[in-house]
Write a protein that binds this DNA or RNA. Structure first.
Length: 266
DNA sequence: ATTCTCACCTGTTAGC
DNA sequence: TGCTAACAGGTGAGAA
C-alpha cells in the first residue's frame, strides 16, 4: 500500500494531530506485535515529540529520547479516532491519547506492518539508500553501474533508493519513457537524468495530492489520496496511454505486476 | 556479491 | 451464482 508520498502524508497528519500528546493508556496490543517488541507497553507515559520519515519508515521521537519505528508495509494504517464500542479485529495497537481521550490506532489487515522501538538491529532501516525525493541523475548512473537486474527491480531496492514502491516505479518509468524490463546497467546517463527528474516530480506531485489510494490506503484523518486520478499507467491495463494513445500493457517484472506503454517507453 | 524466490496474512476479484 | 486460484501498494530470509 503505502509508498513515500503516502507515508509522508501520514507523517504530516501525525504532526498536525498527534504531536505533543501523551499516551495515557495501552488499550490494546496484539500478540504478534508484542512478540516482536515486548517493550510496547512502556509507551504509556510517553509524549510524542515529533514524527519524521525516512524512506517508507515513520519515526516517532518520544519524550524518553527513545524512537518508535513504524512501517506500514502493505496494509498498515495509522488512524486517530474516538473510542469505539467494539474493537475492529484489525486494530492491532490502540493507544489512548491525552487531551481528548481519542485513540491512535495501528490498523493492519495483513499484519505485515511493524511497530517497535528503534535499535541497532534494524538492518533494513540502517541500510536505506538516498531519499528518492532528492535523487539526481549522476547518483542514479553511479548506483546502476554493473547492475544486471531490471531498472524496475533497481528502483524497488530500498538500499539503492529509499521510498519508491510498485506504483511510483511504474509511473516514473512511464514519464521517463523507459521500459521496466530494461537492464539497469544499460540505462544511459542522459536517460538517468530524465528518470531522476521524473521520480522527483512525480513524488512531489503525489505528496501535494496526499498520495494515491488504489485500494485501501487512507490518511490519519481517514481521507483517501487524490493522486489516483493522475496515474498514467498503474492499474490502467487495456486503457489508452494519455501521451501516445497506445494500449497500456500489464506484465510481470521483478516478480511484481508491472504496467507500461508499448508506444512511448523504450 | 548479487539476484531470485518464497514466505509472511487476509481480503478481494478474475476466471471458470 | 458459487467455487477456486491468483493477486494485492513491502520486505527479509534463504537459496541459487
Amino acid at each position: 500500500m503505502p509508498e513515500l508520498p503516502e507515508v509522508e502524508t501520514v507523517v504530516r497528519g501525525l504532526n498536525e494531530q498527534v504531536k505533543g500528546r501523551e499516551v495515557l493508556a495501552l488499550v490494546h496490543c496484539a500478540p504478534h506485535l508484542r512478540r516482536r517488541d515486548a517493550r510496547l507497553p512502556s509507551l504509556v507515559g510517553e509524549q510524542f515529540i515529533e514524527f519524521t520519515r525516512r524512506g517508507k519508515y515513520i519515526i516517532a521521537r518520544l519524550s524518553s529520547a527513545r524512537q518508535l519505528l513504524i512501517h506500514l508495509r502493505m496494509s498498515g494504517r495509522l488512524l486517530l479516532l474516538p473510542p469505539a464500542k467494539k474493537r475492529d479485529k484489525h486494530a492491532h495497537l490502540i493507544l489512548r491519547l491525552s487531551n481528548t481521550g481519542e485513540h491512535l490506532i495501528f490498523h493492519d489487515t495483513r499484519k505485515f506492518g511493524v511497530v517497535e522501538f528503534l535499535d541497532e538491529r534494524h538492518s533494513g532501516f540502517h541500510s536505506l539508500g538516498p531519499e528518492a525525493t532528492r535523487i539526481t541523475g549522476s547518483q542514479l548512473t553511479g548506483a546502476m553501474k554493473g547492475v544486471k537486474r531490471s531498472i524496475k527491480a533497481f528502483l524497488l531496492d530500498q538500499t539503492k533508493l529509499a521510498g519508491i514502491g510498485n506504483i511510483y516505479a511504474d509511473e516514473a518509468l512511464h514519464r521517463a519513457g523507459i521500459r521496466p524490463a530494461r537492464l539497469a546497467m544499460r540505462i544511459k546517463p542522459g536517460e538517468a537524468r530524465v528518470l531522476a527528474r521524473a521520480i522527483r516530480l512525480i513524488l512531489q506531485s503525489a505528496i501535494r495530492r496526499m498520495g494515491t489510494t488504489f485500494d485501501s490506503y487512507i490518511g490519519v484523518n481517514g481521507k483517501p489520496g487524490e493522486y489516483s486520478r493522475h496515474l498514467k499507467v498503474y492499474n490502467r491495463k487495456g486503457d489508452a496511454c494519455r501521451r501516445c494513445g497506445s494500449t497500456i500493457r500489464k506484465t510481470r517484472v521483478a516478480g511484481r505486476g508491472t504496467h507500461y506503454c508499448p508506444g512511448c517507453q523504450f
